[in-house]
Amino acid sequence: MSEVVKKFMYLNRKAPYGTIYAWEALEVVLIGAAFDQDVSVMFIDDGVYQLTKGQDTKAIGMKNFSPTFRTLGDYEVKKIFVDRASLEARGLSQDDLVEIAWEDFETEEEIENIVEVIDSARVGELMNESDAIFSF
């Protein structure tokens, strides 16, 4: 594509299941991936709960969209960030989060886990560097 590539950030601040924000955000990310932009997905505040391992929604009768995060790599989302302070305030660490792999189909370059835990200052910088922030 010949247009200028823009940096899009999807900013997630809501826990899954209690409200529809988390699922809607994920759908928008997947749809937006068709536009070949430089996409990053950021999880801060209660948004970090979206990535917890072992989610099982059978008993509450809702769709479990946790497995869908693992397709983000297939949708060429290469950057997923989690705010460390938000994790710590919730008694969580990276070990509690799902792993999302990424692979370049052409070069077969592989990254085992693109989920990166970063400091709040870095979150702010990345927001500044983005051309557009989509907030959920």
């Binding site: 826990a15 899954p16 299941y17 709960y49 917890t52 391992k53 072992g54 989610q55 099982d56 929604t57 059978k58 008993a59 509450i60 809702m62 479990n64 946790s66 305030a89 919730r90 008694g91 969580l92 509690d96």
Partner: peptide, 29 residues
């Protein structure tokens, strides 16, 4: 281990506290 754990511990001294299992399980805990 959360930032609100101290408040819940205080509450436990004077209230009976329950949590709904299916909602915990859905969220991965």
């Amino acid at each position: 281990g959360t930032a609100v754990e101290p408040h819940v511990n205080d509450a436990l001294a004077r209230l009976k506290v329950y949590v709904l299992g299916p909602d915990l399980q859905a969220r991965g805990f």
